[in-house]
Design a protein around this nucleic acid. Structure first.
Length: 552
RNA sequence: GCGCCCGUAGCUCAAUUGGAUAGAGCACGUGACUACGGAUCACGAGGUUGCAGGUUCGACUCCUGCCGGGCGCGCCA
């Protein structure tokens, strides 16, 4: 709606001030911080100062005179050094409310023709349970994917399975050692092995189910490989279960191992060789990444003949590139940020457009309880897993808290706060708003026998109180805001929008009564507005994966 | 040493990406229920935006230099 209005205003102005076409793209049309500055404010006068060779304030006056004649505005004012503030008339909100009520996902663009996008996230090694950082990545990635889809993109969510490297071998060794320890308690455990309890559980399970098969194997290596494969598949299933707890599901599970088995690594290297970007030195193969912005060239095939992780990753992104996405987003742990220039260089070498891939980094999550940080030690295998946290505080707080802050800043997760059932806890606050509206609807049914779904229209000119206008204004701009945060890759901002809407509703609720028989038209108009608020909340919840609770 | 990220109220974070008097929540203080759910709301106090320059109508935002914190700099994955 913002853009419709924007275009309309610009075309009106263009008739009298043709110079406006020069600055068209820079014109901002935004709700100002304070209400006295109107519903929307226009910065055009500042931009026109140069081409018109006049002071912004004079130009603003001229704009005011032009726009004042339009009926969609109640009032037009000039303020500050040259802002033009526009006050909308109530009639303007009629189609907005209608849309917010009738659309299942309010504001979603149904034609997914903006482009095709791939978003790869979590991609945890299948060597153990998901930790908190993975959970944060999962929530951020999933929400971003939903925002893209909402905005009209075709989205594919992808999980890259690192099932080819040394860590899988180490997984096998770890399980094997625990297996042997069942009979021989002093059997040595590998120095770099996975020390978590889950390894013992897997070994125990194998001991019960597959003992004879393993003992009949010819050599240790065969047994280790068998165990690695067994453990990997089991852990991958657990990862899928954990993600499902957060409403996160993937479209594509891409195996690193298959890249090697199907010759795709070889293929990618040959392609780069054909472009003359690979050379041999010290018995290894190097890619000329320094030609594409990296600090130095990188090894892709080691002197012992095996490939580096980077080689697999090149082949992986070569494959992704050929699948025809307009752009791709990866979500990584922040400790990998040094790796980005290398991959970016490889993509350019492969012929990808500049900025085809963007990476969002996820910073550490720290847990707090009773005001104290809960220290975790991965080395000792002692840490709280994502699943532990979900079991402790529930799915919705986990999702919401992981989303509240920019993913590139550290997050302190306060367990006590997440469990609190009061306004201190933002998840409760927003869910309560939804439930509270439901309770109004129930009461309307009981007291006046009003079926809320039968209120399909209302006169918004009756809604002239300030909180009502604030709510309508916010509802009107929410779709645009969501498109914007998708473009800017700022999924965390959805929590701010949601909180804002809930907060405006709570204020409205506390200061006005909805169920009053003496003015039935007003009552119906207010209930109509509440329907719009509720469905907008539900749309926001759906994007995040949070449950709209009917009754708390 | 080099590179990336961060530095805003006592705490956790915002600031529509260069716009109007830097805003929220928590904590603190004061107040509001004959009631559609007080699981809420209102009011108050709290700031030299790490420091110093620069760019312009205008800087938390951009540029330069410093200070402090985190992370990364493998023929590991």
């Amino acid at each position: 709606m913002k853009s419709d209005l924007q275009e309309k205003v610009i075309s009106i102005l263009e008739k009298e001030i043709p110079e406006i076409s020069q600055v068209k793209d820079k014109i901002k049309f935004e709700p100002p911080k304070e209400d006295k500055f109107g519903d929307f404010s226009l910065n055009a006068a500042f931009l026109l100062a140069k081409p018109l060779k006049d002071k912004p304030i004079n130009i603003a006056d001229k704009i005011k005179q032009i726009l004042e004649k339009e009926s969609i505005f109640e009032k037009v004012e000039v303020a500050g050094a040259g802002f033009v503030n526009l006050f909308l008339s109530p009639k303007f909100f009629e189609p907005v409310l209608k849309k917010a009520i009738t659309e299942e996902m309010y504001g979603e663009i149904k034609d997914k023709n903006k482009g095709k996008v791939n978003i790869e996230f979590v991609s945890a090694n299948p060597t153990g349970p998901l930790h908190l950082g993975h959970g944060r990545g999962a929530v951020v990635g999933n929400t971003l994917a939903n925002l893209y889809s909402y905005s009209g993109y075709k989205v594919e969510k992808e999980f890259y399975i690192n099932d080819a490297g040394n860590q899988i071998r180490m997984l096998g060794l770890s399980v094997y050692a625990r297996f042997r320890q069942i009979d021989e308690s002093d059997y040595p455990f590998p120095e770099e092995g996975y020390k978590g309890e889950y390894i013992k559980e897997i070994a125990q399970e194998l001991y019960v189910k597959e003992r004879d098969k393993i003992l009949s194997m010819l050599d240790e290596d065969e047994a280790i490989e068998f165990m690695a494969e067994y453990a990997k598949n089991l852990l991958l299933e657990k990862i899928k279960e954990d993600l499902k707890l957060l409403n996160v599901e993937f479209d594509i599970w891409f195996s690193e191992k298959e890249l090697y088995q199907t010759g795709k690594v070889q293929e990618a290297i040959e392609y780069l060789q054909g472009k003359g970007l690979i050379y041999e030195k010290d018995g290894a193969l190097w890619l000329k990444t320094s030609q594409f912005g990296d600090d130095k060239d990188r090894v892709i095939k080691k002197s012992d003949g095996t490939y580096t992780y980077f080689a697999g990753d090149i082949a992986y992104h070569y494959d992704k590139l050929k699948r025809g996405y307009d752009f791709a987003v990866n979500i990584w742990g922040a400790d990998h940020h040094g790796y980005f220039p290398r991959l970016k260089a490889a993509l350019l070498a492969l012929g990808a457009p500049e900025n085809w891939l963007d990476v969002l980094f996820i910073q550490l999550v720290k847990l707090f309880k009773d005001g104290q940080e809960m220290k975790m030690s991965k080395r000792e295998g002692k840490f709280i897993t994502l699943r532990d946290l979900i079991e402790m505080v529930g799915k919705d707080p986990v999702i919401y808290f992981f989303l509240t802050k920019d993913s590139n800043t550290h997050l302190n997760f306060d367990i006590d706060l997440a469990l609190k059932q009061s306004s201190d806890n933002p998840v409760f606050y927003v869910q309560y708003a939804y439930a509270r509206i439901n309770s109004v609807f129930r009461e309307a049914k009981e007291r006046f026998d009003i079926d809320i779904n039968s209120i399909n229209e209302a006169d918004p000119t009756l809604l002239k109180e300030k909180p009502e206008k604030d709510l309508m204004k916010l509802i009107a701009i929410i779709p645009e805001e969501l498109y914007k945060i998708a473009e800017k890759k700022q999924p965390h901002k959805i929590t701010q929008i949601t909180y804002d809407l809930a907060s405006k509703f709570h204020y409205y609720y506390n200061n006005y009564k909805f169920l009053q028989k003496d003015d039935e038209n007003l009552m119906r108009a207010r209930l109509y507005l509440l329907r719009a608020v509720q469905n907008t909340l539900k749309t926001l919840f759906n994007i995040m994966g949070i449950t709209p609770v009917e009754r708390m």
